[in-house]
Design a protein around this nucleic acid. Structure first.
Lengths: 203, 203
DNA sequence: GTCTATAACCTGATAGAC
DNA sequence: GTCTATCAGGTTATAGAC
């Protein structure tokens, strides 16, 4: 099939396997994935997978760390930007997630489901909540609403933007096409910031 | 076949298996579950599982239908109650979910994850979005805010109350103990209705 | 109805040729 | 580095005794 002659575009075998692993693990979950599926998807042999990564679990871990970073790492720069207001940050966060999740619709359900199943705790490797910590965002929130628990506040925002993707099978049935789902998410880009501003205003 | 003397024992064993299946499937997911695990959890033999339910998949389907009903069926009576106001319905829904989810914390991630993995489409058996349809709730919302898309509105509410349970592994690390997590959810019982009222008031 | 034993198949991982 | 062939162990489901 595909010949490996390209030295400029680094389509290394290792990367091909990783890319295949991303696809298959995301689609079938860790337990539902067979290493054979990944090898086939990568267009290589099963033995080669074990040559590059030593086991199914090690390959999974590589993919999982990446995915967690993609899902939560997105927050950090925005939360700590001293040049934007609280209201601006909310608009930015909602749109960052809308963009990223429309491109990776099953990222949240994959990551959160596998985290929940907890095949060995690599929860220890990553602390997304520390992003919040003493961020500029939290300070700005405290200045405006000292009574508001930052975690409760952020849960509200993330829940509103991420939930439709987690419950996508339900929403797809409720509204029909993929296009309609995307339209709904795009409508939420304006809706959620408006809602959050209302929440911040009312004691 | 015509014998009815052992009906009670039969029902009891069948229920024991079902209960074990609920536990193990929820904890490990469909693909991660071995029928042996269920048999052991039920305190019976593996062969007996296949005697009552014909296969792993059939047993799973029984459990899954139940779980979906538990997660979404809870909405219907409240949404269609003509004796409560819109504001009252919101308080009721948030507290119904808080109660139910504190008792079944991994119900949402289980159902939504398995729906997403979609091992054969039994999505066709169940249409939770039809609960919304022409409900009293939607009529009340339309009377108050004709501009508000009911699906967007409900997504917001459900997202805010369900999301912490779906992202529970993250939240647990952020706030420490199980007790602290429960306290956070209990705080949300008052928080979310207040927020939703603010959303409804502000155009 | 309930068990033991086993069939039939699947899956992760490795040995060894090229 | 990459392949084919295969091993060792695990998994669902069933046959057959009680």
């Amino acid at each position: 099939m595909a010949k490996k002659t390209n030295t400029e575009i680094k389509a290394s075998t290792e990367e091909k396997i990783k890319e295949a692993a991303r696809t298959v693990f995301t689609k079938k979950g860790y337990a539902g994935t067979r290493t054979r599926d990944i090898a086939e998807e990568a267009g290589i042999n099963l033995a080669l997978l074990n040559y590059y990564f030593r086991s199914k679990e090690k390959l999974f871990k590589v993919v999982m760390i990446e995915k967690m970073q993609k899902l939560f790492g997105i927050l950090s720069p925005t939360l700590n930007d001293a040049t934007t207001s609280l209201d601006q940050k909310i608009v930015l966060i909602v749109n960052l997630y809308a963009d990223m999740l429309l491109k990776n619709p099953d990222l949240p359900i994959f990551v959160l489901s596998e985290l929940n199943l907890n095949h060995d705790g690599f929860g220890s490797d990553f602390q997304p909540h520390k992003i919040l910590g003493e961020s500029v965002f939290v300070k700005q929130l405290h200045a405006k609403r000292p009574d508001m628990n930052p975690l409760q506040f952020v849960s509200g925002i993330l829940g509103m933007i991420i939930f439709p993707f987690i419950a996508k099978p339900i929403f797809k049935k409720a509204i029909g096409s993929e296009k309609a789902f995307e339209a709904m998410i795009n409508e939420r880009r304006a809706l959620i910031p408006k809602w959050v501003k209302a929440i911040l205003k009312t004691k």
